[in-house]
């Protein structure tokens, strides 16, 4: 094991209402992704999609630690990060279904969810590229002295692409207010990350190369994630520069819709399913004296919201063909000639 800082006594949000928010958000992400999966199975979602089932504690824990004007940059596995910043379920689900009321009007799909009004600045589907964009947003915050921080999520696979290293180096050299969060789910896509990476911790073991502390956190513990994210966000806001956080977690399913994930040993899958972040957080709240009725109310509220969003997405019409020639340019059009 390499040098690392593991948060053993996670505290999470102190305010009981915020703790319940953290639970609600994880339940939302879980139930939304399950519904998305069901809709793929019914062939209502075309193309591909990459679910965050099992990784909800990271999206939820970081998002709740952020300021509303902080920016999120995410990957093609970005449903959870989009919802976590406050984008409503209906347009997100409708985008997966390619409907007119989709978050992107049907032009982006599952892999490009963006909600600029929630400072969710995009989901990027070329591995690693968006780390450089997050650094640029952080540069803008630094230049304008706005106190904003850019948070950038990416998978373990991204640590082996050039853009990761270019972005980390630039962020460190310019002391940019950016938090890089590696969601290490142990598989780059189908291949175990350890078998294609020179160091055991794909992100944390690279931190020293950029003068950063190696930070590893239990990505299945929302409180631990919240604590680590809060510290990294504070550091960035103080002007002390970037952080690189490695949150260790596990995908409950395969890499994408096309992948049943059968390459993973059964006992490994079972061990991680036993460490489900959502049920773990539920038990923790019960242990702290939260009434089960309160949690059941949260869960049924989320279920109703998911059902409503499903209905509103399925009932919506497909986008009209006029949308094809819009939004290439800032004037709203697509003309290449005068």
């Amino acid at each position: 094991m390499t040098t690392e800082r593991t948060e053993t006594r996670a505290s999470g949000p102190a305010d009981p209402a915020r703790r319940l928010d953290l639970y609600r958000l994880q339940v939302e992400l879980r139930r939304f992704e399950k519904r998305a999966y069901d809709l793929f199975m019914r062939n209502l979602v075309k193309g591909t999609s990459h679910l965050s089932l099992g990784q909800e504690a990271i999206a939820a824990g970081v998002a709740l630690a952020m300021r509303p004007d902080d920016w999120t940059f995410a990957t093609y596995r970005g449903h959870a990060h989009t919802l976590a910043r406050g984008a409503p379920m209906t347009p997100v689900l409708a985008e997966l279904l390619g409907r007119e009321n989709g978050l992107l009007g049907g032009k982006g799909g599952s892999m490009h969810l963006t909600s600029a009004e929630h400072n969710m600045m995009g989901s990027y589907a070329i591995v690693g590229a968006h780390l450089t964009l997050a650094a640029g947003a952080a540069w803008s915050a630094q230049y304008r002295e706005s106190g904003q921080v850019a948070v950038c999520f990416f998978g373990d696979g991204a640590t082996n692409i050039g853009a990761f290293h270019e972005a980390l180096n630039l962020a460190a050299v310019w002391s940019l207010p950016v938090v890089f969060v590696c969601e290490n789910n142990l598989y780059m896509e189908y291949t175990p990350i350890g078998s294609v990476t020179a160091v055991p911790r794909p992100a944390a073991d690279r931190a020293a190369a950029y003068g950063l502390e190696p930070v590893v956190v239990d990505g299945n513990d929302a409180d631990a994630v919240y604590d680590v994210a809060s510290a990294a966000l504070d550091r960035a806001r103080r002007g002390d520069g970037p952080s690189l956080v490695e949150a260790v977690t596990y995908r409950h399913g395969g890499h994408s819709r096309a992948d049943p994930g059968t390459y993973r040993p059964d006992e490994e899958v079972e061990a991680w399913l036993a460490r489900d972040p959502v049920t773990a957080y539920r038990s923790r709240l019960l242990g702290e004296g939260v009434e089960e009725a309160e949690l059941l109310a949260v869960e049924s509220g989320v279920d109703a919201a998911v059902d409503r969003a499903t209905e509103e997405a399925i009932e919506a019409p497909p986008p009209s063909a006029e949308a094809i020639l819009t939004d290439v340019w800032a004037d709203g059009g697509s003309s290449w000639r005068n």
Binding site: A135, Y143, A150, A163, E166, V173
Partner: peptide
């Protein structure tokens, strides 16, 4: 040096930083 910045030999970081800055209020 706040407005005129030397970068490493990192073309992806250069245009990526320009992109991220442009989408958040600057004109790089």
């Amino acid at each position: 040096p706040r407005r005129v910045r030397d970068t490493p030999i990192s073309e992806q970081a250069i245009v990526g930083a320009a992109a991220g800055a442009a989408m958040t209020g600057l004109r790089p």
